[in-house]
Design a protein around this nucleic acid. Sequence first.
DNA 1: AGTTGGATGGTCT
DNA 2: GACCATCCAACTG
Length: 195
Amino acid sequence: MRAGRIVEVEAYGGPEDRASHARSGRTARNAAMWGPPGSAYVYRVYGMHDCLNVVTGPSGTASAILVRAVEPLAGLERIRAARADHAPAGRRVVRADPGAVVARLARIPDVRLASGPALVAVAFSVSRSDDGADLLDPGGSLRLEAAPAGEPALAVAVGPRVGVAYAGEPWAGLAWRFWAAGHVSVSAGRGSAGR
DNA sequence: AGTTGGATGGTCT
DNA sequence: GACCATCCAACTG
């Protein structure tokens, strides 16, 4: 079993949100965004990366929470195996030295194995076949669970969403990204504001 | 340590 | 035909 704690998310709305995939209305790609709360919306970006969202609004309305980073807590071996086995979708350019890839993965600390939206999907083997899945089903292979009772709450920082400048204002500037303040597992990409 | 460019193809214009 | 809710490698300093 693999498990982790979500430490960074972004909120996306319906057709009115110019940064949301729902901005062009309902299509085959984004149909899951109109699904019931607690279901998954999984999409592919840049032709190679899959990303996991949790639908939050009532059925018939579009919404999604993008899971941007997870702190791995259990199943580290399996998470590393998933990272090692992962072949970038459709890649044609062969890596010069496969050994270098293994060495690079070995240098990544446990806490940073799922520090990015596409990395979350790889670490937990989420793919587009999970699109529409019920994440609240206790028997499901991919589940969203409440934090254990008594676990101290994390301080939450807020800021603008990453990579949505094209949407223009007010959408690009909305502070709809939420992360655990100062947490090591938060993503730190180019467009990202970091921890 | 920080910055830049390449990969890649489905989706929408 | 252009864009894209990203990641990694290869640079520069």
